[in-house]
Simulated scan of single mutants.
Amino acid sequence: MGLVAEYEILCAHLPLVDVAAAVPDATLEVAIQFNHGDRPPFLVHATHDDHAPLERAFASSTFVDTYALVGRAGETRRYQVRSAVSMEAQLGDHLDDLDDLRALATAEAIVERIRVTPRGWIQTGWFADRAAFDAFRTFWQRNDCFSLRRLTRDGDPEEPGDGLTDRQREALRIAYEMGYFDIPRRASLDDVATELDITASSLSERLRRAQTHLIETTVASTWPPLPDT
């Protein structure tokens, strides 16, 4: 039976991590069109209330050659990003064995989702068996940048919200109990941040990532339809 894994690759040199670091409160989901040579286009679904800083980050990224807006739905925009360098050139100075990286491309695995963060990539992948998963995990662990978040067997039931970090779960619980999600609100972002002894900006990012994960695992498994106009 196959395995489904959610894991984080902690590597600041992965493509578009510099963009996520420049706009840390944006949500970036990426799909890679691997059948387009050694510099495949990236499809980036970016959710943010102001896309001007995001596009400035694209323009200043050393990885990005060109980008184009190809669709929008609410606060989410879809961009096609063409890279200035190949993945191997981008990562070559920071990984110990590029041959093993190339071998991963033919592994019996499918990466279903990539979320870009200021620290690296969070991926959800399907692996044919334990050996396929171990080959993938071992490579990234050897480069000191692999963190497993969840591992289940294909077909195992999964509770909504599975995969939240302890800090995300705590932030949601405290914010809910204090009335941050009430209408009207009974507690401000600063109130909840004080209760958790963190900054308001850290709490905002934590809540956004937790809410994004809950949406992804419940109601937003597919890209919303684009408007007709």
Score class of each variant (00 low, 15 high):
Gln211Gly: 12
Gln80Asn: 08
Thr106Pro: 04
Arg119Trp: 01
Asp99Ile: 10
Ile114Gln: 04
Met87Lys: 03
His13Lys: 11
Ser221Ala: 15
Arg167Ile: 03
Arg72Pro: 00
Ala175Thr: 10
His48Val: 07
Gln123Ala: 04
Ile110Val: 12
Asp100Tyr: 14
Pro15Leu: 06
Ala109Ser: 08
Arg113Tyr: 02
Val85Lys: 13
Ser83Thr: 06
Gly125Met: 06
Arg119Val: 01
Leu189Arg: 12
Ala105Tyr: 07
Gly155Gln: 12
Val81Ser: 01
Asp162Phe: 02
Thr27Leu: 14
Glu205Met: 12
Pro160Gln: 06
Gly179Val: 14
Val19Arg: 02
His94Ala: 07
Glu55Ile: 01
Glu170Thr: 12
Ala135Phe: 13
Ile9Pro: 04
Ala21Asp: 01
Ser202Thr: 14
Pro160Ile: 13
Arg130Trp: 00
Thr217Phe: 02
Asp96Met: 12
Phe42Ser: 00
Asp129Trp: 15
Phe34Ile: 10
Thr47Leu: 11
Arg56Met: 11
Leu28Gln: 00
Arg115Tyr: 03
Ala131Tyr: 13
Val70His: 02
Thr117Tyr: 05
Arg72Cys: 03
His213Ala: 13
Ala128His: 11
Val19Ala: 01
Arg119Gln: 07
Arg78Thr: 13
Ala220Asn: 09
Gln141Ser: 05
Asp50Gly: 08
Asp50His: 07
Glu29Pro: 06
Thr106Ala: 07
Asp162Pro: 07
Gln90Pro: 00
Leu203Ile: 09
Leu10Lys: 08
Asp166Leu: 14
